[in-house]
Amino acid sequence: MIGYVGTGGSFLGCIQYCLNDKKELSEKQKADLSQKDGLKHHGRAEILSYNRCFGNPKELAQQFRDVAKLSKRVEKPVFHFSLRLAPGESLSRNQLEEIGHECAKEFGVANNQYICVLHKDTSEQHIHIVANRVGLDGKAASDSNSYKRMAALCRRLEKQYQLREVLSPKAFLTPNERLLPRNDSRKIQLQKDIRQALIEVNSFDQFTTRMKELGYTILKGRGIAFIDSKKVKIKGSEVGFSLSKIEHVLALKQKLNNNLAEHEKYKKATEERVKKHKSTGYRLSLDVKFESMIGQSPFIPTIMEAASLLSVLLKSELPFELIPYELTMEGYRNRKRKERSKGRRLHN
């Protein structure tokens, strides 16, 4: 389970975000996404519970504001929480409502005004709680150590509801726990997208265009960072692709492509020379000579070196379309077998 906690000054803005459909999507887009994803993009929000409040967003916001006026010292009276289950996990409506109440209790607002809302536009179940930090008695709930408290709440709820356990943020772990491997699906996906984009493109402009098509905003300065569709910013270095590494990969690809082009020219020129001297009597020996001459191309060492470095930098096997089959290890071995076979036939 992953939790979020934040404070703010606008009850209406927070409540509208939680209750209203996404304004940036048209009705057709919502319908298309609903059919594609099997999720609710229209009518995505369902209120699980009202606590000491009622009504539509404007009415709720006014009620919250009226109570918040009881404390003149609180500049940010809005408490906003969200709790998201891991992929593949699900709880009943009543259980999610219970979790919302546990969250309100943990942060001292169980007796304050709050609403608990279920969102249905993602594959992972998640709820939002909008609460008033100011109670009916005029006292304000503390927002200190909120991230640490949220992490502790998530670990407790995971055990209580037998959910998949997730590591808390590193700041709240013991030194030994910080050494445990973490599984961040957002970073894993970004890493895959960067790797695939680098395989597909040949220049930095093409790379930025491809990443934008995948839904990322790119920030480039002394380093590089990516902002995904959820407005989460991740540095390239955090997923193993710093700006210098990306530029190195693209430079190697340019070098590889240039040498492949030169190799093709060499191959065609060799083929033309062999054709001029070809006759029926020497056909077989010239075929062997041609294969040998291609294998002696001065561009092959550079091509193999660049391909090997690319494979290491991308930490994956390069697809065959980047390198002609004859220059792959399998193609090289196959060519050598043919040369040996033809050589034996000449001697017989």
Rank of each mutant, 00 (worst) to 15 (best):
F172E: 02
E262L: 13
E213S: 05
H248D: 05
R195L: 03
K275G: 01
A269H: 15
E238T: 04
L252K: 09
K212M: 15
D205Q: 11
A251S: 07
K253H: 08
I246H: 08
K265F: 09
K267F: 14
H248N: 05
G215W: 08
S185I: 12
S244L: 03
F241V: 01
R210Y: 06
D184L: 06
L179H: 07
I188P: 14
P169R: 01
K275C: 04
Q189A: 15
H248M: 00
I234W: 02
E247L: 12
T174W: 05
K235R: 15
P175H: 02
E177N: 04
S229C: 14
P181M: 00
E238N: 10
K235T: 05
S229D: 15
F172M: 04
I224D: 04
R222G: 03
D205L: 11
S244I: 00
E177V: 00
R178K: 04
N257H: 09
K276W: 05
K212T: 12
T174C: 06
G240F: 01
N183V: 14
A261V: 01
Q196S: 08
Q189P: 14
G223D: 00
E213P: 11
I234P: 11
R195W: 03
L198M: 04
V201W: 01
T174E: 10
V239K: 02
L214N: 04
R186F: 10
R195Y: 04
K233D: 01
N257P: 10
S203Q: 10
T209N: 09
K268V: 08
S244N: 07
S279L: 09
Y216S: 02
S168N: 09
E177P: 07
K235D: 11
R273V: 03
K278S: 11
Q189C: 13
S237E: 06
Q191F: 09
S203K: 09
K276A: 08
K187I: 03
S279H: 09
V239E: 03
S229P: 13
Y266G: 07
L219G: 13
E264M: 01
E272G: 12
E271K: 10
N176S: 14
R273L: 10
Q254M: 04
Y216P: 10
V232G: 09
V249I: 01
M211D: 00
E238P: 12
N258K: 12
H277Y: 08
T217Q: 15
K170Y: 12
E238F: 05
R283S: 13
D193N: 11
M211K: 02
I194E: 05
I199M: 14
D205M: 09
S203V: 07
K192Q: 15
Y282Q: 14
A171M: 06
L250F: 01
A225Y: 02
K268N: 13
N258Y: 12
T270Y: 13
F226I: 00
L180E: 08
E271P: 13
E271Y: 10
L173Y: 07
E271T: 05
R273M: 09
M211A: 00
I227N: 08
K170W: 11
S279P: 12
N202D: 15
I194S: 04
